[in-house]
Each structure stands twice: as C-alpha cells, then as structure tokens.
Amino acid sequence: MNLFTLFLSALLINNVILSKFIGMCPFLGVSTKLSSAIGMGVAVIFVIFGASVLSWALYYYALVPLELQYMKLICFILLIAAFVQFVEMFIKKNSPSLYKSLGIYLPLITTNCAVLYVALDNVTQKYNLIETMVNSIAVSAGFMLVLVIFATIRERLAASDVPEAWKGNPIAFVVAAIMAIAFSAFAGLV
C-alpha cells in the first residue's frame, strides 16, 4: 500500500478515537486541560511507536519461527508493560526536564487500549517494518490531534452553563459526537 495513503487514512479517516473508539479512557481523563493533553499525546506517540516496533520484531523473529502465534496477546501486553517501565526509568535517569512534562502520563499508558490495538493491528494487517512504523506514528498522531482539539473545546466548556446531569463526561460525549460528524467528512479524502 502507498505509504502516504496509509498515513492519511490512519491519521484522519480511521482515527483511533472518533472512528474506532479506542483509547477512550485517557481521552476522557486527560482532556480537561490543554497542557496535559499535549503531554499525554507526546507520551503516547513515543510509547506506541516503540512498543509496536518491538512487538513486530518479537512476532516475526520469535513467535512465527516457533509457530507460537497464539501467544501474541500475552507476549504483546507483557512487552508493552515492560517497555513503559523501561521508558519511565530511562527518562528519570537521563532527562529530568522531559520527565517533568511527560513522566506523570507514562504509567497511565500501560492500560491504554490504543497501544495494544496498534501492536495487534500491525500484525493482523501483515504490515512490513516500514509500514508498521508509518502506521504506528499515524495512529498515535491521530490520537494526539483529537486529544488536543478536544481539550481546547473542553476548556471553553468548563465555563459554560451545562444542565446538572450533563456536567462532566456526558456533555463531553456530545462534543465527541459532533467531532465524529466533522471527521466523517474525511472519508472521501483517499
């Protein structure tokens, strides 16, 4: 597949949050402030990229030769958990300033469905290494894009007069519905 098409469709048309509904938990949790949304977004891009390249390698260099494909779920989730720990430790040691902006979001990412989803998707779609890299960057960039747009809307929403029962998450879902309509217009792009 054309790499550019792959990138665009993973970024906009099949956006993880608005079209596949993956990664909703951090989407609701961290999107109340713009600064946290950016921090979370960058951390997610980094972890998704690293974790999916590692899982790709594990799958094609260990599981396939040994015919252990059925182990992929167990192996990938363990690999992701280990990778997140490693990244957190590495940043703590080497870049305190980076830790200040990203560190707090790293533990949140292990239970982020988006990471596991991308790792599994790369394998089911039979992407090669380059396609895996492009796909994982595009998916996570799409995640960050929606997270940031959503955070700016929610900052305004906090000051508006919302009915009692709709305060907080329910009204956020209405906003997400409207954004999904906007994003569905990208469907004719490719």
């Binding site: 938990c25 951090p26 609701l28 949790g29 961290v30 999107s31 109340t32 402030k33 946290s36 720990q85 490693f86 957190e88 430790m89 703590k92 040691k93 305190p96 830790y99 200040k100 560190g103 707090i104 979001y105 533990p107 949140l108 239970t111 907080g168 998450n169 956020a172």
Partner: peptide, 27 residues
C-alpha cells in the same frame, strides 16, 4: 524503575486525570 530516584523538582507533579475511571492506576 522503583529504585531509580525521581529527579529533583519532579517529586510533586500533579496529574490532572480525575475524569478517568481506571481505578488500579498508580496515579
């Protein structure tokens, strides 16, 4: 990771995640 000390100035980082429902999260 537990053994590695948190860098200076980062001991009291404030996560802003109360909208989230993941109850087992260390944050």
């Amino acid at each position: 990771n537990k053994k590695t000390p948190v860098p200076e100035g980062c001991e009291n980082l404030k996560p802003d995640c109360r909208g989230c429902g993941i109850t087992d999260c260390s944050l």
